[in-house]
Deep mutational scan, measured.
Amino acid sequence: HNLTITQGKLFFHYNPKLCLSEIHKMEEVSGTKGRQERNDIALKTNGDQASCENELLKFSYIRTSFDKILLRWEPYWPPDFRDLLGFMLFYKEAPYQNVTEFDGQDACGSNSWTVVDIDPPLRSNDPKSQNHPGWLMRGLKPWTQYAIFVKTLVTFSDERRTYGAKSDIIYVQTDATNPSVPLDPISVSNSSSQIILKWKPPSDPNGNITHYLVFWERQAEDSELFELDYCLKGLKLPSRTWSPPFESEDSQKHNQSEYEDSAGECCSCPKTDSQILKELEESSFRKTFEDYLHNVVFVPRKTSSGTGAEDPRPSRKRRSLGDVGNVTVAVPTVAAFPNTSSTSVPTSPEEHRPFEKVVNKESLVISGLRHFTGYRIELQACNQDTPEERCSVAAYVSARTMPEAKADDIVGPVTHEIFENNVVHLMWQEPKEPNGLIVLYEVSYRRYGDEELHLCVSRKHFALERGCRLRGLSPGNYSVRIRATSLAGNGSWTEPTYFYVTDYLDVPSNIA
């Protein structure tokens, strides 16, 4: 807008934040220059609390790290170098490059900038070799853009010569660093050979998330399962459950009422301010606690030095998902009996873990797994792929695949051998790939016309006998059925096997 004052003059007093240069501009645009008398524009009460600059400061050096910015700028000295009290560095987070010096300023003089007072450097006698002032900004957020400017702080001049310097606002972004852990990993099994893994992005990506790394490792069953005799009275049979499938998407929606109208769909109840505040506090606490764990609990591995020492970490090797089922080394339970199943799973520490690289999504279907087997899954978020990966501390989750139908069934015939004193040795093959492992066998036998009897055969007993022995049988026709019990439950009964026990007292003698 054009402003013209045809008559009258300007009068400025007691404006401590208004620089004289701005008042002189007002004289020019209003056409009143030359009308004012000496005392109409006070030299001592206008701009006496402001830094009124008329020179431009330029930054000469900028260096960044993930949490620091090192700045240096060209030296500046007023005509009387004693008038320079120091520099004021202003900075704040700036997602967009549209910041002005006066953003967030209120009537009390406060604003949204963080201000650092910096002492002037030592003055050199040689004007050509003056030290460049600077400042190291610490405690910054990774991968965050900051708006920065600097200006001088000078003393009051009796001659009211307006001098000083100020830089333009520059924008500097800190470097990326390792992201925080992925949030809320959930693993479920939808079949006997697959596990579905879902997660949420890290709360602090500290860069642009480029991919996720998912490692999985087959877990050995508890050692007590191999040692305890679950045929003993009072000892509860062990059981394991597989990871249940995901709930429906509708039930997972946030901010939804727990109660549904019987007449149909209901609208979600909005969260109160107290609920939102509580969630923010919980989120802040979780982030602080995660940072504490990362800094205190997890110790970084030592990389190899120039002395030739090897990095103890196993090298990563990509495998196809079809090879995942046989990740671990199978060892027989008892070496003397080769027909026992290889369900003991000690994992070799030198073995390469299978892994998958996930790009542009937060889910993965891990296939080719062994049925009813526990897996430990390790999830890392990465925001750099080359020249070397920059990934987060791992988040861990466990899951067990679903049982395989008929995996616990005894394959092959049940054979028998009759000894003296009416002892019958029953023999059968253990299931080759049971659900988890076989903890015991149930032997059901009966003599024709009598009630059915049951015998429990422990895992250890089966390994020693290759089956079991029935003792003290009365003469007669017998039928026997056997079924295995694994961590997933009972298998199917075998087809009945028949044998006849004679009275050993009636056996004919070869003595003449």
Rank of each mutant, 00 (worst) to 15 (best):
R376P: 01
R240T: 13
L321Q: 15
I209Q: 11
F355H: 12
N255W: 15
L437T: 01
P413H: 14
E282G: 13
A309P: 09
P314E: 14
K357P: 11
L237Q: 04
S257H: 05
R471W: 09
S342V: 15
D385V: 08
V365W: 05
T494A: 03
L379H: 00
K271P: 05
S486D: 01
T210L: 12
L464M: 10
Y445L: 15
A407F: 09
K302V: 06
L369I: 02
S479H: 03
C391E: 01
S444N: 01
N477S: 04
H425W: 12
S341Y: 01
S342I: 03
L225W: 14
V214K: 00
E465V: 14
A399T: 09
T307P: 13
R376E: 05
T303L: 04
G308V: 15
W216V: 13
Q256M: 05
T386L: 15
F285Y: 06
E265A: 14
L437P: 04
S320C: 09
L440P: 01
T340G: 06
P245S: 13
D311M: 09
T303M: 09
V480H: 00
S268K: 12
A336G: 04
E224Y: 11
Q275Y: 08
P431W: 00
P413G: 15
D503L: 06
Y292M: 08
E388R: 09
S283T: 06
N360R: 13
R240L: 08
E258A: 12
R301G: 03
V327A: 12
A399K: 13
N360Q: 07
N477G: 08
R318Y: 04
P387L: 09
R286S: 07
L426A: 01
E282P: 11
R218A: 06
R400K: 08
G308W: 04
N360P: 08
V480M: 07
S283P: 08
L455R: 08
S341R: 05
N206G: 08
P496R: 04
L235E: 11
E351D: 11
Y375T: 02
E249Q: 15
R471D: 09
Y230Q: 12
P238S: 10
V501C: 11
R318S: 10
Y292R: 07
K361H: 04
V480K: 00
V443L: 08
K287P: 12
W493V: 03
E227M: 14
K287R: 08
F285S: 11
C231N: 03
D323S: 08
Y441R: 01
F289P: 08
V424G: 02
S262I: 15
S367I: 08
E258N: 08
V414H: 01
Y292V: 09
N295Y: 14
N360Y: 05
V296S: 13
P403W: 13
R481P: 00
I366T: 01
P403S: 07
L437K: 11
F215Q: 10
M427E: 15
E362F: 09
A336I: 09
Y448M: 09
V358A: 03
V424R: 04
P354I: 12
G308C: 14
V297W: 08
S243K: 03
P354E: 13
I438W: 02
T241K: 09
W493R: 03
R483D: 00
G306Q: 14
P387R: 08
I482G: 00
T347N: 04
T272P: 14
A463M: 11
E356Q: 07
V414M: 07
N339E: 13
E362M: 09
Q219Y: 15
V393L: 05
A405E: 13
V423Y: 08
P403E: 06
N421M: 12
W216Q: 05
S305Y: 06
S223A: 10
C266G: 15
F499A: 02
S243L: 10
S305I: 04
D323H: 14
A395M: 11
S398R: 13
N255L: 03
T373S: 10
L453F: 05
P238G: 12
P300C: 11
Y448P: 13
C269N: 13
H416M: 13
R286G: 04
V331F: 07
F285E: 13
D311L: 15
R483V: 02
T288V: 13
S305R: 08
D204A: 13
T241E: 02
D503E: 06
R316S: 14
G322S: 09
I276M: 06
N421R: 13
S203A: 13
P434R: 02
E388F: 05
D323W: 12
E227C: 10
P314Y: 15
D273M: 11
I438M: 04
T343M: 07
S262E: 01
P387I: 05
